[in-house]
């Protein structure tokens, strides 16, 4: 992979050029003491040393609410698909979120390719940045998601006075040539990048005591563990853990009509297995009607089902769920470590 250097003082002009010339640029900004991805109006808002964002950048590829079809009501209804996609630059995406997007790519393209996701994805440029200040609940190194080798167009690493830029695609390279002042990276600078990444590894506070490849097996043995009931007792079924998760992609579908009751749309919106009615059916049945089964299902998704289905991890260790969970039960790391303990 080719690597370049952007001096820090040249970063602002690069971002400004992208904002002015290329496309909508989305990046992490401050929000009430935390960070959130949002449209950048000017470079000054961009925070590249953030820990993590409230919501994952997947929201720009798989929006929380998205129209799928439009229709006219009446005797001869007409229907048409709605697919919205515009060029977008996701700037400052952390490696774990890049890995999560790689999972979504697979989930939305296998079997029945989803045009709504894939059109947005095709038009999106991903400019990553290495995460050097991990949030206290993150456990990326244990899952191999602390750094990414694929899934980005450009990847930045802060090495002090400058950024090393790894070029991941020709699209990325073109943007660089067109809008940034760069120079070749020296061996010393590449070594510096390695040492920054190494130093960052030491800043993670949570570790998984089991390798991700062993998780499916561990879970196979843990179905009847008392842990599920014990821990889920406190669950508020508030869905915070699934809403903030970069690898969750479940949704609900509903119809809405205009006030004149003549036309309408069908939209999807984020939904998830921790919400009470996710598996409820007409007539009052609910296939996951208790907190225990919902809590267990989410953990199995993260550690086993998604892996078996899509060949990618169902959790990238970002720690957002653990930060968001008021009941302090949502961290997959805690559950997996505990089950590992139990299985000894």
């Amino acid at each position: 992979m080719e690597n370049k250097i952007i001096e820090k003082q040249n970063m602002a002009p690069f971002v400004d050029n992208l904002i002015n010339a290329e496309a909508e640029v989305i990046g992490p900004k401050r929000k009430d003491g935390k960070y959130a991805f949002d449209k950048l109006i000017e470079t000054g808002e961009l925070c590249l040393d953030y820990d993590t964002t409230l919501l994952p950048p997947k929201m720009y590829l798989f929006p929380p609410k998205e129209t799928l079809i439009k229709f006219e009501l009446g005797k001869e209804p007409e229907v048409e698909p709605v697919v919205e996609a515009k060029p977008l630059i996701l700037f400052g995406v952390h490696p774990y979120d890049i890995k999560a997007i790689e999972l979504l790519d697979v989930a939305f393209s296998t079997t029945n390719p989803d045009i709504n996701y894939l059109s947005k994805r095709e038009k999106a440029v991903i400019i990553g940045v290495d995460c050097l200040n991990p949030n206290p609940n993150a456990f990326c190194p244990s899952l191999g998601t602390a750094t990414a080798e694929t899934g980005f167009d450009l990847m930045l690493t802060d090495i002090g006075d400058s950024y090393v830029v790894a070029i991941g695609s020709s699209k990325g390279e073109q943007l660089l040539t067109k809008y940034a002042e760069t120079r070749e990276a020296s061996q010393v600078e590449l070594a510096q990048r390695n040492s920054e990444r190494q130093k960052a590894l030491a800043r993670y506070k949570v570790t998984l005591n089991i390798s991700p490849e062993e998780l499916p097996q561990l879970l196979d043995k843990s179905w009847d563990s008392p842990w599920w009931k014990e821990k889920s007792e406190k669950c508020l079924s508030c869905g915070s853990c699934i809403v903030v998760c970069p690898t969750c992609f479940c949704f609900d579908v509903q119809d809405d009509v205009t006030l004149n009751l003549k036309e309408g749309e069908r939209y999807r919106q984020w939904d998830g297995c921790m919400l009470v009615d996710f598996a409820a059916v007409a007539g009052g049945g609910n296939f996951r009607g208790d907190k225990e089964s919902r809590f267990r299902h989410r953990m199995y998704r993260k550690g086993k089902y998604i892996w078996e289905r899509y060949g990618k991890l169902g959790c990238v260790g970002c720690g957002r769920c653990a930060s968001a969970c008021l009941a302090e039960i949502a961290s997959p790391a805690e559950t997996f470590n505990r089950l590992k303990e139990e299985s000894k």
């Binding site: 929000k31 009430d32 003491g33 935390k34 959130a36 409230l54 919501l55 929380p64 508020l236 079924s237 508030c238 869905g239 915070s240 809403v243 903030v244 509903q254 809405d256 009509v257 006030l259 009751l261 984020w270 919400l275 009470v276 009615d277 968001a324 008021l326």
Partner: peptide
């Protein structure tokens, strides 16, 4: 609108947290 269409309105049966998170808010507890 739902009632005029003869449909049972879909009123959420999940907590405010869902919409609060979707709105991108920082949690008040934080």
């Amino acid at each position: 609108k739902a009632l005029l269409l003869g449909k049972r309105p879909e009123i959420p049966n999940y907590p405010v947290c869902v919409e609060c998170k979707l709105a991108g808010n920082v949690c008040t507890f934080d």
